[in-house]
Design a protein around this nucleic acid. Structure first.
Lengths: 193, 193
DNA sequence: GTGAACATGTAACGGGTTACATGATTGC
DNA sequence: GCAATCATGTAACCCGTTACATGTTCAC
């Protein structure tokens, strides 16, 4: 799925400018999709050229003017077809977990920092999420509630895991050598007797 | 983090061919990283040119010959530095969740198929995971156990969520119109009174 | 002999990221 | 004045994906 399809999807919920599309994506799709201006604006331009969206200039008071786009009939058709043909992929890319995988190659202090960074990130994200959910819950479609609930559930599980295993990992890595295995004569080796 | 660093990391655990690196990544990193031959082989070639790995031809009986690579001292240095400088990013990209987000734009049958596909995928993945974990558990480093446990935990939570909300989503979408909101006069509208 | 697994590579393509460039408006 | 937010865009670059190309060995 490319950013063009995503823009079409967001615009199917109502008119928006490129800037506002990014805001929507950050608020509602952050668990499973991201898009920067460098991909949104070109996508919008291409979509308009093809007649899938229509843009118009809107003056604002107290703010710079913006260009809001609305989805056209042809755009809706394209969106339906794109969604129908989309494979349900689900890919995670986490340098964080690669880092923990190679925990024994990291300075102990740095490992702790990495873990704490993620715990804080998940904690804050979850709080913002619950706040957003409470605020919009009654006007969400079933699909939106489902997707948001999925994200919330998974992040909560991840956070719980991190909080419950942080200490253990730090302690265990402290008594391993540079191969990652328990040091001969160390506490872990003794425990294994 | 690029595939080069990943290859270095895998090779820090022992000599391997490109083919075997891919196997390792699929077995042990599948929850949070993927790499295809199209990126592994060029990465290995570049790494060797720079002296970070050393390859040698190994004849096998009953199989084609392979070229196995070992990490060099310079390679280990580079790996340590790369890991030290790596930001703990964690990104999910899921067309699956985008699809559920726009559930009301999908044919009901297709939505059910998408949901079931993911349930089966997670179920099978979890089973393979537990099997792999049981088989290798005693020889894993703390970091490896941590990362694998994270993946297992999160997939289990996701699977549980899907199983518990599949029916609800299907039922709710069935009684909404093309805007995703409850149909006037439908069961949901009545329930809201 | 045919499909599956083993094994290695190349080249084009596509798409997103990053950096750059610019400017309005508000509030401190 | 200056930082922050709002607002829009371009262009180079990176890098991974996909498709293509080839060959071995085994088991059925």
């Amino acid at each position: 799925m490319d950013v063009k399809t995503l823009c079409l999807g967001v615009l199917s919920m109502g008119e928006r400018s490129g800037y506002e599309i990014k805001k929507t994506v950050e608020e509602s799709f952050h668990h499973f999709f991201r898009a920067g201006y460098g991909s949104i604006y070109p996508a919008l331009a291409e979509l308009e050229r093809a007649g899938h969206v229509a843009g118009r200039e809107v003056a604002q008071e107290g703010r710079p003017a913006k260009r809001v786009y609305g989805i056209t009939g042809a755009g809706r058709d394209l969106l339906h077809r794109a969604l129908a043909g989309e494979e349900p992929r689900h890919v995670v890319r986490s340098e964080f977990l690669v880092l923990t995988y190679f925990a024994h190659l990291l300075p102990a202090e740095r490992l702790a920092t990495v873990l704490d960074t993620m715990i804080v990130r998940f904690r804050d994200g979850l709080a913002a999420d619950l706040e957003h959910y409470a605020r919009t819950n009654d006007q969400l479609t079933p699909g939106q509630r489902f997707a948001l609930g999925y994200g919330r559930t998974v992040v909560a599980a991840a956070l719980d895991y991190l909080e419950r295993h942080r200490e253990t990992l730090l302690d265990e890595v402290a008594v391993t050598d540079e191969t990652g295995r328990p040091q001969a004569g160390g506490p872990l080796a003794a425990a294994g007797d």
